[in-house]
Design a protein around this nucleic acid. Structure first.
Lengths: 201, 201
DNA sequence: GTCTATACTTCGATAGAC
DNA sequence: GTCTATCGAAGTATAGAC
């Protein structure tokens, strides 16, 4: 692994624990095993390290957003339960990769101080999922698969709980994989069962 | 207003915008209109300012937690709809006071870096509301006011949405009073109506 | 590309006159 | 209780030898 990659990985590690401002260039270079001045052969500034981390995150989700037609086609062969299961899988895919998980934690820490982080949080973690799920619920209603509810309300009822799990998840460091936490698994399943019952025709 | 109070109010203002580490003692004293050294006649350190802010928050909610018996008695004359309405009012009381609101924003910013902030967030904003609401739902079930659901599931379904609103609320600075935001009001009401229908016997 | 050495800035905090 | 003056520590970043 090249030095630049090592710096990036180390920075992700440290930033995700304490935050950008709380980690010094000295901290990073000490952990990597080089002198401070060497870091500036790979990055022009400390800020650029964070920028490249965010760029990396961006690149990981490029082309992963789904068009309206695709959203509709997704549910053609799915029950509401299967759809919610799929949403859950998507969410866990976001959080299942340890490196991406750390970057999402950086986003959570920095979102009040960094406009780009706030934008990531808002777009990827709030707005887009709600829009996507609302469309799917809307299609389900029109096809008579579920009762006649406001699809936006259903999407918020479903997704706000997922975000709640995300919130709790980072409470105690968020190092553990949520897929392997049976307590979280049980809560998510119970919530989905409750909603499935509530939206039946 | 005494100098010490002026310092506290100014610090609350500044910390809630950028975070504790991002605001210097010089920033605070400049905004107050005194020299840095004068600040140390009122506080022994910058850290102590934050400690006193948290202490103030603590004092505001002292004795406001409710015992199990009280929780049960609360719903004796209430419909589920009225109860959820009450919860909403409580939540807005937390956020309705501009000064307290700023401090809650500080808590949100600092919770990844400050153990006390994290503890406030976890206890007041997550654990306690869930425990309280679960007990109330449990009582409702036993009295036959609502269907036979798992009360923990109901509490999470209800409260995770409230937290979702809280989350969105701080997105764009969170300066506005949510009670006066008609869009938020409509979302909360729609969610409560949906849940009311879902938990009917 | 990495090192030693150092420049420059900002920070929290203190001493002591008034 | 406020001021002027200043300190030491820690931060980012650069120059130049190897």
């Amino acid at each position: 692994m090249g030095t630049k990659e090592k710096i990036l990985d180390t920075a992700i590690d440290l930033f995700s624990q304490k935050g950008f401002n709380e980690v010094s260039v000295r901290d990073i270079t000490r952990a990597v095993g080089i002198k401070e001045s060497s870091l500036y052969n790979h990055f022009t500034s400390k800020q650029q390290i964070l920028d490249e981390i965010f760029q990396y995150l961006s690149s990981q989700y490029e082309g992963m957003t789904v068009s309206e037609e695709e959203a509709v086609s997704h549910i053609e062969k799915m029950s509401p339960e299967e759809f919610m299961e799929m949403c859950l899988m998507n969410f866990q895919m976001y959080l299942g990769n340890p490196k991406l998980m750390k970057i999402w934690r950086i986003i959570s820490i920095e979102r009040f101080r960094n406009e780009k982080a706030n934008s990531f949080f808002k777009n990827h973690l709030i707005d887009y999922p709600l829009i996507y799920q609302s469309k799917v619920f809307d299609t389900m209603i029109k096809r008579g698969l579920i009762g006649s509810f406001n699809p936006d309300v259903l999407a918020r009822a479903f997704y706000s709980f997922i975000l709640f799990i995300y919130l709790r998840y980072f409470e105690d460091g968020g190092t553990e994989n949520p897929q392997e936490n049976p307590e979280i698994q049980a809560m998510v399943r119970a919530h989905m069962d409750f909603l499935s019952g509530a939206i039946k025709k």
